[in-house]
Structure formats: structure tokens, C-alpha cells
Design a binder for these strands. Structure first.
Length: 623
RNA sequence: GCGCCUGUAGCUCAGUGGAUAGAGCACUGGCCUCCGGAGCCAGGUGCCGCAGGUUCAAAUCCUGCCAGGCGCGCCA
């Protein structure tokens, strides 16, 4: 292969990233099983071929007595850290050394010898201390990736590890007592991305919003609105101590007044409050729904807490616990024996005064989720609720489901900045930047991307100025621009009579430049990345991957041309009179090369689009 | 006091037991006759919080400290 240019090998930093972008491939199968390719079509076909070549080599070597182990480890395929080491590497030899009772280097040598004789797709197999196996593949092996991307299109990268399991993903679930703020936005972006990620990984996902329309918060909302309503009618009233002070409450009261006039004045206080509360919460839920829709986040179901009460589901759930002898009465209150399951102490579900606690609704709610047939429950919660996790797990356990059937993803706070300066917010005074403010200012795409750039359990800094910038400082523009730039290229190509051929018909052998190979390798790691980030419930990995892919594209695009220059008046000038090659390689652009590059870039565009799609971010054709 | 999370470059952060720990930003200097310069290239920094342990191999796993954040209601 034309691994030329050893001379000034100033391989750009992206090269490292491409290799680092590596998603390790773990074979999911033991060697004894025959299911080598059964469910793992998601990890990248090239890596898979190498992994299976290794397992075959291990078996062969054992057959002829060169290896003794009865159990072979799962071969892990990696991108080596340095380009000189090859295309792919594996550490199998090192993990086998113990059982083989030989130095890793020796074991590696045995495997390498075996592979050299038995695996035609490896151009070169080498061994490096302390026991790595490094592989250089025949370049055309990588082109199968391009075929795969074309064949699967917008499903490229999707896998089947989920095996169709039903997942209920609950997120946002903000109390309908006010507009959504930044923190909810982060949860919303995360939930939406998780849903897409898990669907792509083969799960069947439903998104649900739990409406806390019962309990104390609702009462406070009702009292607050009622108080503002009375104010409009110049009635004496005292605003509730812990009430909601935001202006939106006044706006609600005015709207209520427009709709119902003085009708509510005639009701008894209790009835009037109920009326106000119910009306206000309906309005707020609708507003939340609108906000989320404009943010590009939707739910299959909006589940009302109040409906748990009216349908008798609280009693039913507690009864189910009682049948398992997991509730008891003490001090005239009813307790759930959550300490039987990892929780530090038992918890009250029904107070002395006969009211149910919030935990009781939540137990009933989760019981209901399970009864609806979901095998896996995922909740996205604010990190300040982390202390609540053990008791919810206890509840799930109590109903006979394992620890793993509930996963809680915690989301940390968002610190809002504007040009590096902190934006102060005080919820108490009712002054906060709402999600809608942010979406209006920076757009839904940028907001979502920013929310997803960090691991969810770390604090996030969100700079409004940065999110608006249209330059490479702004990661979302950087990635979207890569997509738009390609779209523009294909438009120009079509105008000038260069169609994008099917991969099978393209002269891919023309692709010999390192920048081209980097792109293909980066594409090849997408399925593994997807599976890993779905498994870890960490969409932020996608944002890093996309920035790397976009970076590789821009490097390629700067250095190489795809279409021949339009004007043929360009002189074949004597670039570099003193033999100094200019940085821009002036290559002969054969028709083959143009065709091959168009095909390559088409697949790059597909993957950019797929990745952005997983984040719920658009892939614009023009910007 | 107990529990959870975090501690990696000046800042914001990646890093699912592997080789010489990385990116973006910021800073400096370069690069457009031509497919979108909304781009590219070149410059350099780390007791991976500290100390032990497990391992052929630790930023990663375990234990103990230190620092920051959060949580520990018959609130929701």
C-alpha cells in the first residue's frame, strides 16, 4: 500500500484521534459456541473479521499443539495508538499468557505465525512488547466498510444487542408548576438521545413523562394562582408562604380570569382552589409540551400521578407489597420494609394523617410500569435526587424484579454562562432562564448538542455566546458544517456531471492517501461506538466521535481535491522550483480518483447524519 | 456523622485494564487563482488529588485519606 510520505510524517493530530476513536471490540461469544457472527453485526465488520481470524488461529494452533489453554479469552480488537504499529491490534496474547504459562511475547509469536499462514486479509502481522499483536490489513479490506454504510444507509451502525427488549424511558417529568428551565433541557436532550441510541441498539423504547399533578406542589400551585386571581378582583388574600412567585402565575391568573370571569369567586374556597389548580396545571402541562416539541422532544405517554389515585393503583401496589409481608404499621403510619433490599432504613408510605407519601405514588407508578410489560426501566433524574435511588430499587426488587431492571441516570446542574460570565438565576425570586429562552437564543440544535457534550453526571457549563458562534470554536457548527460542506460538494458534482456511483461500481483502488484511510477507519468504528454508548447510557460519546469525524473530513478536504479544477487555464506550474513540495498536494485528479472520493465522502456524510440524528440534531444541507 | 458523585494541561473536559495519557478553548505564528476559509497547519505544557494494594500491565479495579458538590423528612 502506498504508505508513502515517511519523510515529513507530521501526521496531524487527528490521525491520533482517529485511531483513538477506537471502540474496542469484544467478542460476545465464547469459543465453544458456534455463534460467531450471530448478534454482533454491530461492532464493525472489519474488526469482526480480524477477531474471528484470531479465534480461528487460536483453535488451529491448539489443534497442532502450539497452544495448551482450554479456555481462550475473548479477543479484543483495538486501534493501535500509533500509526506505525498498524491498522488494528489485539492483546489476546497477554491475557492468555498466564494460562499458557509462557511469556506474552512468546504466545503472541505463536498466534502471529498461525495468522500469517491462515489469514489472507492481513498484509502484515507483527509482535510488539509486552505482547501486542499488530495487524496491517490489505487496504481493500477497509472498503467493505463503505459497502456496509451504503447497504445499511440510515441504519448503519445499528445493532441488535437490545434483542427487542421493551424499555420504558422516563425523563423530564418536571412538576407542572412552572416553565421548564435549563436543567430540564439537559434532561430532555439526554432522554431523547438515549431513546434514539437504545432504539438503534435494538431495544424497543417508549418515552414517558410523569406528571406530578398530585400532592403538595399542586396545592401550592393552586393556592398561588387562586391568590393572584383574587388580587385581580381586589379581594383580600395573603399570598402563600411557599407559593410560586414567578410572573407566569399572574399571567395564568389573568388567562383564567379571561376564560372564567368571576365565576370562581362564587365557589367555596376549597372548590375554588381545586378549580384553579387543575386549570393551571393543565395549562402548564400544555406549555411544557409545546416547549418540548419546539425543542424536538416528544413522548409516547404523559402519565398522570393523579390517575394513580383515581384508578386505585396506590392501594393495589401497597397490597401487593403487603402480600409479600413488606409493609408494617408503626406509630400509626404505614411503612415499606425497604431495608430488606439495600436501602438504609424503612420508609413511610402512608402518613399518620392517612395521606400517602410521594414514595407511595412512585412505588405504584413503577409497579405499573412493570405490569405494563417493560423489561427495563430507565429514569433520568436530577442528581439531587440520588438519595432516592436505593428506595426505588428496593421497590422494584420488592416486586420480584432484579436490580438491573431499573437504571437511574443522574443529570447534574447546568451552569449558564454568557461570554464566560456566569448568568445568575434565582428560582425563589422567580427569575430564571427558561429552556425556551435558550432555544430562542441559540436554537434547538445547538442547545441539544451542548447539553450532550458532557457526561451527564458532571456539571455542565453552557455558554450562550459560544453556542451562537458560527465558527470552529463552536462544536455543533463544526460538525454541521462538515455535513453541509459535503452536501454542497455533491450539488456541485451533479451540476458538473459527476454522479455518485454505487460503492460496488466505484474504482476504490484509487483511494490510497492516508487521509482517505483515516476516514474509512473512523467510519468503521461507528457501530462499536454506538453499541458502547448505548450500553453505558452515554450519548456524549457520540458528540466526541462526530467532532473527530468532522475534523478528519476537514483535514482531507483541505489537503485534497475531489472535483477537477473548473478552469483549465490553471497552469501546470512548476510548484516548488527548488524541489520544495507545497503543502497542498497537487495531484493528478484522474476521473477514477474523483469518482472514488465522491463515493467515500458520500458514506462519510451518511455517518455524520446518522450520528447527528442520534443526538436529535439536524444535519443541514446548507447553512 | 452516614451515603452518592466529582478530582486528568491555564480553562472546559474526553479517556469501556494495555504501548510514549488526549481533544476543544485560550495564546502565538502561518495558509485562499480552484469543490463552502463557517476551513486547515505549526508551536507545550501534566506528582492523572494523595498513599497503599490487586495485575504481566492501573488515570481506569480495591482500601484508606484529602478537597469540592449533592443528598440524608410521616416534603415533593
Amino acid at each position: 500500500m502506498g504508505n508513502a510520505s515517511n519523510g515529513h510524517d507530521s501526521s496531524p493530530s487527528f490521525a491520533c484521534e482517529a485511531r483513538k476513536a477506537c471502540v474496542k471490540f469484544r467478542s460476545l461469544f465464547s469459543l465453544n459456541s458456534h455463534l460467531f457472527f450471530d448478534t454482533s453485526m454491530s461492532v464493525g465488520i472489519v474488526q469482526e473479521q480480524v477477531a474471528s481470524a484470531i479465534t480461528n488461529a487460536l483453535l488451529e494452533a491448539r489443534k497442532r499443539g502450539a497452544l495448551q489453554s482450554t479456555n481462550f479469552p475473548e479477543p479484543v480488537i483495538d486501534f493501535p495508538k500509533r500509526e506505525e504499529w498498524g491498522d488494528l491490534s489485539s492483546n489476546v496474547a497477554m491475557s492468555m499468557a498466564k494460562e499458557e504459562k509462557r511469556p506474552p511475547l512468546e504466545v503472541a509469536q505463536v498466534i502471529a505465525d498461525q495468522l500469517r499462514t491462515s489469514c489472507p486479509l492481513l498484509e502484515k502481522v507483527s509482535v510488539a512488547p509486552p505482547g501486542f499483536l499488530n495487524f496491517t490489513l490489505r487496504p481493500d479490506c477497509w472498503f467493505s466498510v463503505l459497502e456496509e454504510v451504503e447497504r445499511t444507509g440510515d441504519r448503519y451502525g445499528h445493532g441488535t444487542v437490545g434483542q427487542g427488549q421493551r424499555v420504558l424511558l422516563e425523563f423530564v417529568s418536571a412538576n407542572p408548576t412552572g416553565p421548564l428551565h435549563m436543567g430540564h433541557g439537559r434532561g430532555a436532550a439526554l432522554g431523547e438521545a438515549l431513546a434514539r441510541l437504545l432504539q438503534a441498539a435494538g431495544y424497543e423504547v417508549d418515552k414517558e413523562y410523569y406528571i406530578n399533578d398530585a400532592g403538595r406542589q399542586m396545592k401550592l400551585l393552586a393556592d398561588s394562582v387562586y391568590a393572584r386571581y383574587l388580587e385581580l378582583h381586589d379581594r383580600e388574600c395573603s399570598f402563600p408562604e411557599d407559593g410560586y412567585h414567578g410572573d407566569y402565575i399572574k399571567v395564568l391568573a389573568q388567562a383564567l380570569n379571561r376564560e372564567k370571569g368571576s365565576e370562581i369567586l362564587n365557589l367555596a374556597s376549597d372548590a375554588a382552589r381545586r378549580e384553579c389548580g387543575q386549570w393551571a396545571s393543565e395549562q402548564l402541562v400544555r406549555a411544557i409540551k409545546d416547549d418540548l416539541e419546539r425543542f424536538g422532544v416528544t413522548f409516547e405517554t404523559w402519565y398522570s400521578e393523579a390517575s394513580l389515585f383515581s384508578a386505585g393503583k396506590i392501594e393495589a401496589a401497597l397490597q401487593a407489597l403487603e402480600q409479600r409481608d413488606l409493609v408494617f404499621i408503626r406509630d400509626e403510619a404505614t411503612w415499606f420494609r425497604s431495608s430488606e433490599f439495600q436501602d438504609e432504613k424503612d420508609r413511610v408510605v402512608r402518613k399518620q394523617d392517612g395521606d400517602y407519601t410521594y414514595l407511595a405514588s412512585d412505588i405504584a407508578y413503577h409497579f405499573d410500569k412493570l405490569q405494563r410489560g417493560y423489561e427495563w426501566l430507565i429514569n433520568v433524574w436530577g442528581a439531587d435526587h440520588h438519595g432516592y435511588v436505593p428506595r426505588m430499587k428496593a421497590a422494584v426488587n420488592a416486586f420480584g424484579y432484579g436490580d438491573d431492571s431499573l437504571r437511574v441516570v443522574l443529570v447534574q446542574m447546568v451552569r449558564l454562562l454568557r461570554g464566560g460570565e456566569k448568568v445568575e438565576m434565582s428560582k425563589r425570586a422567580g427569575e430564571f432562564i427558561t429552556l425556551q429562552d435558550v432555544v430562542d437564543e441559540v436554537g434547538a440544535d445547538a442547545a441539544k448538542f451542548f447539553f450532550l457534550m458532557r457526561r451527564s453526571d458532571t456539571h455542565l457549563e453552557f455558554d450562550l455566546e459560544l453556542a451562537k458562534k458560527q465558527s470552529s470554536e463552536n462544536p455543533v457548527y463544526y460538525v454541521q458544517y462538515a455535513h453541509a460542506r459535503l452536501a454542497s460538494l455533491f450539488r456541485t458534482a451533479r451540476e458538473r456531471g459527476f454522479p455518485v456511483l454505487p460503492v460496488g461500481d466505484a474504482p476504490l483502488a484509487a483511494l490510497v492517501q492516508p487521509e482517505e484511510l483515516w476516514l474509512v477507519k473512523q467510519l468503521s468504528s461507528f457501530p462499536g461506538l454506538l453499541e458502547a454508548s448505548a450500553g453505558a447510557l452515554e450519548p456524549h460519546r457520540i458528540t466526541f466521535y462526530l467532532q473527530e469525524l468532522a475534523g478528519l473530513l476537514h483535514v482531507f478536504y483541505y489537503k485534497h481535491r475531489v472535483l477537477p479544477p473548473r478552469i483549465d487555464g490553471v497552469k501546470e506550474d512548476e510548484a516548488g522550483e527548488d524541489g520544495e513540495p507545497s503543502e497542498l498536494v497537487r495531484e493528478d485528479l484522474s476521473k477514477e480518483l474523483t469518482m472514488a472520493r465522491l463515493v467515500l465522502l458520500k458514506q462519510v456524510q451518511t455517518v455524520l447524519k446518522n450520528g447527528l440524528g442520534l443526538l436529535g440534531v439536524s444535519a443541514p444541507e446548507t447553512m
